[in-house]
Every structure is written in structure tokens, then in C-alpha cells.
Amino acid sequence: MTAGDLPPEAAGRLSSPVFSSGLSVNDFAACLQLGLRPVALVQGYCVMRWSSYGANPPVGYRPVSGYNAYGNPGVGGYRYGGVGPFTGAGYQYGPRANALSTYRCPHYYTSGEHRTWGENYEQSWLTSTWEQGYETARARMVEEAAEAGAHGVVGVVDTSSLLIDRSIREFHMYGTAVVVEGGQRPERVWSSYLAGGRLSKLVESGFMPTEVVAAMASVRTWPVCVTEMLMRGSYVPGGYMGGDPVEITQVADAQMQARRLARDHVKGRLGGHNLHGADLRVAVHEIGEGQTEVDCVLRGTVVRRYRAAEPLPPPRLTVRANG
């Protein structure tokens, strides 16, 4: 199935005279007041293969040159943008992991099991799989909306979950397609996580939604000896118990990197407009031997300003009497 090819069930449903809407009654009322007429519940769906390297280092993967000393954030900190080629029109990462920062063993001995180098890398293939799944689901949802003659989709909900032994990831998105009464036929159907009252306030404060947007970043740590030992509690700097705590830089870096990458991926898609109602979600998995995977998803609604903000009428302070 390609985008641009709705299943026959959908086409039949969308042509029905009965509208359906996933809006709550409050949002429904607020949309009617705003001049938005719900026409149909629209949805998009996509299932993607989802793969990872498990607990092994990436195949054919080598530490990049230019080691940084462990525990010295001035040198071994966050390398912005990584090594992946970056272009304005979307991100083009190769199948190779996107190296972010490296860490070196401070010891003077090595054995077969001693990890002399560590590196944080972005699992960029997951980033692009997420992007493709999300974008495809959205494109299909928007296509259903266009089919129903709508101007926009409000109250979007998107869910994504791993199915069947975490080997595939499904992306589902749905929302209520609306027609702006008396509005011109839009060039592109807009979409928004907001609906009803909140959407109405957004419009009155000078913003129009453009589209829902989300990006994922998945950062893996390949731990250097120190990180691994600190995570196991078996590393004693200074040689005595109960010494000063030290920062586990590599893990803290991974957490920062995942969040920043997700934000940067989203910002790359804003085109100078604003992101409203950002929702940042993070899941951290331990993959054995001090290896950490930090998955981060940032979603929100892209809004563009069409008129300078007008100050709000002075709000009234209230206290509820029904405690």
C-alpha cells in the first residue's frame, strides 16, 4: 500500500453524510463556536520494521579518532550535530550510527575484557524509521481529511507501540477533520494536537496551527571501563571507600544528547515557525553491562503567527466555593 491509495473501507466511510468526530462534547461545542464543522474521524496507520544491535557493539563499528579524557567535560563533552551529514531539507543519516562523544580509559593496563574506549552514538536508523513511520501515518491521515473535503484536522492523537517481540513498531494517528465554514480551499490540510477551547484561544491570540510534528532520538552508550564500573558500583576513585561522588559523565551526556537531538530534529522541521505544547517523553532501557539506551520523543503542534499578539483582557481571579 502506498500513500495516495486509501483502502476501500475508508473511501466508503468518508463519503457518508454522517459526520463522526473524536472530539469531546466540550471541544465539539468550542469548534462549532469557532466556525469549524466536524466532517469525519480520519486516521492514518503505518507499521515499520524496528531493529537494533542488541547488546553488541554496532557491526563494523570503530571508535572515531580524537579521544577525549574521561571526566573532563571541557574536552569530552557534547559534540553538537555529530558526524552525520546534515542538510536543510530533512536529515540524511547513513545507516551508520551517528557518533556523539567519545571517552577514554584512564588506566595504564588493558586486558581482553577491559573497555579502553567508550562512545555515545545516536541510533540514527531508528530516528529515520520513526520519522518515516510518523510521517507516513500523518500523510495518510491528512489524505483522508483531504478526501473528506476538510481544511484541517484537530484533536490529533498519535500512538506508537512496539509489537510482536519488539521487532515491529506501529504508528497510528487519528483526529477529527474539520471544515472552516466559508473558508477558501486550502493548499495544504493543516493539523493540530489541540482542539476546541484551547485551539480557539490559540487562534484568538494570533496563531494558526500548521501541522503536528514529532521526532525521535535514540542514544546508546558503549561504556568505557569507568562508566561500566561506576554503574556497577565497583569503581573507587582515590582508592578509598566513601569518597566524593563523581559524575557518570557518559550516561549524563547520553541523556542530554537524546533530549537535545530530539529538539534539534524537531526544530529542523519548524521552518522558522514555533512549536506549541511540546511534549517530551523519555524512556531509558538498560541493555546489560552498563549499556544504556535513551529513547526520546518530542511532539507538538507547529504554529505560525499571523498577527502580532494582543494583550489578554485582564483576567479575573477566582476562588471556587466547592472546595
Binding site: L202, M208, L270, G272, H273, N274, H276, Y306, P315
Partner: peptide, 22 residues
């Protein structure tokens, strides 16, 4: 007829619309 667009700095925020307005 909208303001902003390419070349402008984007704002990202997790505030609700109510919070932004206030």
C-alpha cells in the same frame, strides 16, 4: 499573510496555551 517563516528563530515551548497567554 502570516508573520515569520524561514530565516526566523523558532520558539519551542511546553507551556499550555493558557500559560502562554497569562
Amino acid at each position: 499573510g502570516f508573520i515569520g517563516g524561514p530565516g526566523r528563530t523558532s520558539v519551542t515551548s511546553d507551556l499550555s496555551i493558557d500559560e502562554s497567554l497569562v
